[in-house]
Write a protein that binds this DNA or RNA. Sequence first.
DNA 1: GCCGTTTTCGGCCCGACTGTTTTCAGTCG
Length: 574
Amino acid sequence: MVNAELTRAFERIADLLEIIGGDRFRINSYRRVARTLDGLAEDIADLAARGELTTLQGVGKGTAERIEQFLKTGTIDVLTDLESNLPPGLPDLLSIPGMGPKKVAAVHRELGVGNLDDLKRVIASGELAQLAGFGETSVKKIADGITFLETSSERTPLGIARPVADRLADEVKKIKGVKRVALAGSLRRGAETIGDVDILCEAKDGPAVIETFTQAKGVKRVLAAGETKGSVTIELPDRRELQVDLRVVPAESFGAALQYFTGSKQHNVRLREMAVRKKWRLNEYGLFDGDKPLAGANEGEIYERLGLPFFPPEVREDRGEFEDPSCVESLVCLDDIRGDLHAHTTASDGIATIREMAEAAKALGYEYLAITDHSKSSAIANGLSIQRMEQHIEEIRAAGKKIKGFALLVGCEVDILADGSLDYPDSILKECDLVVASVHSGMQGGKSSPTRRTLAAMESPYVNVIGHPTGRLLGQRRPMEIDMAAVVKAAAESGTALEVNASWQRLDLKDVHIRQAIDAGAMLAICTDAHSTGGLSTVHYGVTTARRGRAAQSTIVNTRSLQDLRKWLAAKRA
DNA sequence: GCCGTTTTCGGCCCGACTGTTTTCAGTCG
C-alpha cells in the first residue's frame, strides 16, 4: 500500500521546510496530512480514484493535487525542489534529542554538515562547540542524544514498557509528600508501542520529589530536573534505554494535567481549539475563563464543560471520536468478555494441560474456553496429526464433563496452507465446536497470496475465526501484505470473525484495522492465543486495542453468552 | 496549506526546561 510511502513523503516535506525556516502553519498542515495518512486503513489510491481525497482531515485542494501527483509519478514537486537544495541526510539529524530545525540549519550552514557522520566529526574536532549558540554543555547534550538514539532505536512495545512504568509509579508513590500517582501518555492510551513513559503525581514540594525521583532504582541518566518536571532514562533488560518523565502538580490541577499529559497531542489540540471558540483557555493547569478556573481538579469536568462525553484514554487520537462522540457509550470493556476462543495446551506447544487451562479460564469468571491446538503442518509447534487430533477431541470432551458451570469448547487452530486449503479435512473440522484458521507459513509472498488464502479459508462453513490476520510480530516481523478491505468485506459477508489477538507481541488486528472491520460490518473476537494459564489474563491488551478501534461490545463475539455464541457458530454452518 | 455555529481572510494550542541569549530563543512534549 502506498499510504506509508506518502506519509513519509509529507513528513519529509515538513522536516525540510522546518530546516529552511518555512511558515510554521504550513509545516503543521503537512504534518497533519502525514498523520491522517498514517492512521488511514483504506488504500489512499482507492480514495483518490473515487475523488474523495478532500474528505480527509486536513486535506485541501493543494494536498489532494500533491497526492494525485505522487500516485501518478511517485514524486511530489514540492519535495523534489526541497531535496535538490539540501543534503539527503540532513532531516535525519532532527531525530537527535537536542537537535531542532534551527540547530540543524546552523550546522549545515556554518559547518557544511550534511549527515550524522559529519555531525560526529565536528563534535570530535571541537568545531561544533565554537559555533554561536553551541556551548560545551549543548554539544555534550547532542553527543548524548546521538548515543541515546543509537541505543534506543525503536519505540518500546506496550508489554515491555507497562511493567517498567508500574514499578516506577510504585517508587514515586513512596516518595515523601506524594499524594497520588497516575500513568499518562501513550501508555495510558494503550498504544501498541510507547515512545516514553509519562508519570504524573500530586505533591506540594515539586523540587524535592523530582530530586528523589532522579535517584530511583534503575535510572541510567538524568536528562532534566526542574521545579515540576524531571526526565530520566531507564535501562531495559536488552540494554536499550527508555525515557521516563515525571511531572509534579498540585491537587487543583491534577485532572487537567492528567488530561493534558495523556494526549494524544492531536486530541488535545482539538480540545484547546474548542476552548478557544468559547473564549476560554485550556492548559495543563485547568480550563479558564480569563482568570476564573472552570475545571481542573477532575479530568471528567474538562470534557463536561466543553460539552463532550468523557472520552476514555484509548479513543483520544483524533481519529473520529470528535465526529462520533456517541462511540463511547457502548465501548467494549474487560468485564464484557465471557470467554476465550483461542488457547493452546500441552497437546501442541502450550505448557498447561486442558484441565489447567479450563480451571484458569473459569477463575477469570469466564463462561467458556475453546481449546485450539495447532494442526499437523505446524510441525515446529508440535501440531496434531489427524489421529492425535481425533484423540484430543475426545480428551477435551471428557475434561469438559468434569468441570461444572463452565463450557469447554472443542476447537483447533488450523493452518491455512499455501494454496488456501485447510490443514484438516472437513471430517475433523465438523467435529469441532469452533475453528480458528491462521496463516503460519509462506508469509512473505506477494500481495495476492495471503489475501487469496485468507478469503479461501473464510469460505469454509467450519471456519469461525481468522487468527492474527496480518501475522505481524511487533518489532520483529512485518505484517503480511494483505488486502484488508477485501478481507473485512469477506468476513462480514461470510459470518467469520476476525481475531484481535491480545498478545502484546501481536496486537493483530491493530486499532485502525479494527475500525475498518467494524465499518465493513465484520465481527471480531478478542482472544489471547494463550500458551499458558497466565497467558489468558493478557486479554486486557486485546480489549484496550479494540477500544482504540472504538469497538462496541456488540461487535465482539466472545462477549456473548454461551447460548448466543453457539447460535452464531451454528449460523455459519447452516 | 487548511478552514469557517462570529470569518472565504486572517487566523491557526500552550507551557516547562535549558543554556548562554544579559532578556530569550530553541527544543520538547
